[in-house]
Design a protein around this nucleic acid. Structure first.
Lengths: 242, 242
DNA sequence: ATTATCTATAGATCTATAGATAATGC
DNA sequence: ATTATCTATAGATCTATAGATAATGC
């Protein structure tokens, strides 16, 4: 693991130099604060590293070094490595899921009796892209983490656990927008949508190189401009005999 | 690593029991054959394991055990673990790339002056889906391997190396089909297409569980029935001011 | 005579635990 | 008195190499 030791936002405690820094700060922090801060730093570091190298490509030592703590402290806060991984996934899942759920409910209310595919997809996709893009680096890391994980067998199970409700909500709105569609068409359509979304969140840099710089992996606004309209048209095209 | 020790197609040499089996067979095989067979078995096993657990989630021992050989033999045939990984990628890349290239050229010839988006996508996507679906388990493993790898930073670089030519060919046909489109729209459209394709190739089982069995991850024919038409409509929808 | 495969092993690294120390909490 | 953090270390496992053995090749 040779990641650039980009400092995470909060100041690192330096190993073997806990005098100045720490002595100046610790007294001001309550234990609850210390705990919360350590947990956050650990999860941020793990999120960053897991998003780039996956569960097995990251060692607990990598995480500890990035935070500037001793490896064993990870065992104090987390049962084991897998649990740390799952908590990285879970931490922000509720936020994105909740936001999209709310957006879908609001859209349903606003659209009344005749929701559209594009409207539902705007609520689902734009809300998510905004969250990552406006949430800064950590949210972008989380997005890449999810995308990476989504293409793996175990990762897909985590997706089930955390995202099924909001996805099924989207599906229910799509069904109302396309009342004569089979479930099969709706689900395959969703499958295409989520593939495009995950490919965006992964931000591998491939589209940058492929397009010779015309598109940029981290340009979520450009994706947002196009994805809902693109996918909605795709759904409608399935009408006449898939 | 606790994969079911599903035997790979060729009979395994059993460790510590090389008497019957081997004694009966070896004499009949030339060294070139032996070499070719071992290489193939190793690559097949690695492909299977890497597709499920990624580069770091698989040990050389896992691969060797699956083949039924000693770990050190892997070092005899491959420089190191990463090289093995790259050779798994490269082995079938030329085949899929070549087939799609041919299909696109044939389509261009057939379509003459007015190629369509849907026609180009059929050539590109259907050719690939057929290859995996008709190629049996190994090709399906390779598809999952590629999909998994495509969502990672290093994996994306392998995609560049092996697939850029055929993708740029597709892009050139799309440009002819959509002469008034910006490069940006074309490339983002491709980005959505490949996301949907990779999500299909990954076969994580998520769509099966999400849809309650209505869709199946390994049902590539159903995807093939829909994907080109779906994506073509998406491209066309970008026309009026993305 | 050359190539394929195995034995033995080095050296590094990884996860996890037990127990000590240094902070905060009442 | 409790919680956060560090020291020391066990036990397992991993990649890779050196060198021996057992096949095929002429």
């Amino acid at each position: 693991m040779t990641d650039s030791p980009r400092p995470i936002a909060r100041e690192r405690r330096k190993v073997g130099a806990k005098t100045d820094d720490a002595a100046a700060k610790r007294p001001r922090r309550t234990k609850a604060e210390q705990r919360a801060e350590s947990l956050e730093q650990i999860l941020d570091a793990a999120e960053y590293l897991f998003s780039r190298h996956g569960l097995y490509g990251v060692t607990l030592r990598d995480v500890a070094e990035r935070v500037g703590i001793h490896t064993t402290l990870l065992h104090y806060y987390f049962e084991d490595k897998r649990k740390l991984f799952e908590e990285v996934f879970a931490r922000r899942a509720a936020v994105t899921s909740g936001r999209r759920m709310t957006a879908l409910e609001e859209y349903e209310r606003a659209a009344g009796a005749s929701p559209t595919v594009e409207g539902a997809l705007h609520a689902f996709l734009d809300t998510d892209l905004d969250l990552y893009y406006e949430g800064g680096e950590r949210w972008m890391n989380y997005a890449a983490f999810c995308a990476r994980v989504s293409n793996t067998p175990e990762g897909a199970v985590l997706m089930d656990v955390h995202f099924d409700p909001v996805v099924l909500k989207l599906v229910s709105v799509l069904k109302r927008a396309l009342p004569d569609y089979s479930d099969e068409d709706i689900f395959w359509g969703y499958h295409f949508v989520t593939g495009a979304l995950m490919n965006t969140l992964a931000r591998t840099g491939r589209i940058d190189r492929l397009s010779g710089g015309v598109c940029r992996s981290d340009d979520f606004p450009s994706v947002k401009q196009r994805i809902a309209k693109f996918m909605a048209a795709g759904f409608l095209a399935l009408r006449d005999g898939a």
